[in-house]
Amino acid sequence: MTSSPQSGQRAVGKLADPIGADAPLDREALEEIFDDIRTHPRYDSELNGCLNCGICTATCPSAHYYDYSPREIVQLLWTENVEGIYDAMQEKIWACAQCYTCAARCPFGNSPGGLVMVMREVAIKHGMESAKEVLRPFSRVMLKVMTTGNQLAPNMITPEHFPDWGPNISKVEAPLNILRKAIPMPTLHTQETAWAVNLKTSIELYTIWEESGVLDQLETMDENLFDVIVDIMDEKREDYADWLEEQDDDDDDD
């Protein structure tokens, strides 16, 4: 389930005909990718077979706007079409909006959305170019959540980043710090995080990233971002250690 950074180099995915003569990967590599999907702990509970009834695609928001069909994803996986699976991982799986309507409707209890998540995890494990592309606009969010424990901060939402949301983030004009302090919840008087997060809490979360292999995933995908995060968190850990020491000193004084 956790990623191995070494495997990242192999699959330099180009958008090419996966079954043609200039296929980017040989059959063995394709099967290895499929094996990672098939042995994922979620896989068996998300796929039970398929009648191609189309209820998933019928109700899929992304199917209306993209060349994407959850039914096709299920069919590819069920028939172990490793070329088709690899091809779908280049673009199609990223079209899914993760609403899970497909799973709520499937008469056989499949979860195409869950299968897409498995494929996304495997795309990351293999360092696929498609995954890197997807991740790029996410780096701000990633940095935030990795180092603070919050995905989103008030100061991330600016007309500059969201020009299509209109010129005014607030309909009452005032500096952000004042507007934030005018929220009647003391935990929300923040700009750098959505709510004030305890230092200890951020560090606990960082330990989870380390121990669950998520940091390794990130290193495969974006080494620069990985380095930045490690630096920030080393510093935070030091801060926390210092604070703990201070407490001990205080206790000693008592």
Partner: peptide
């Protein structure tokens, strides 16, 4: 009725 004609492949 929201459906996909699976043989023609569009929702």
């Amino acid at each position: 009725i929201k459906g996909e004609d699976t043989l023609v492949k569009r929702p």
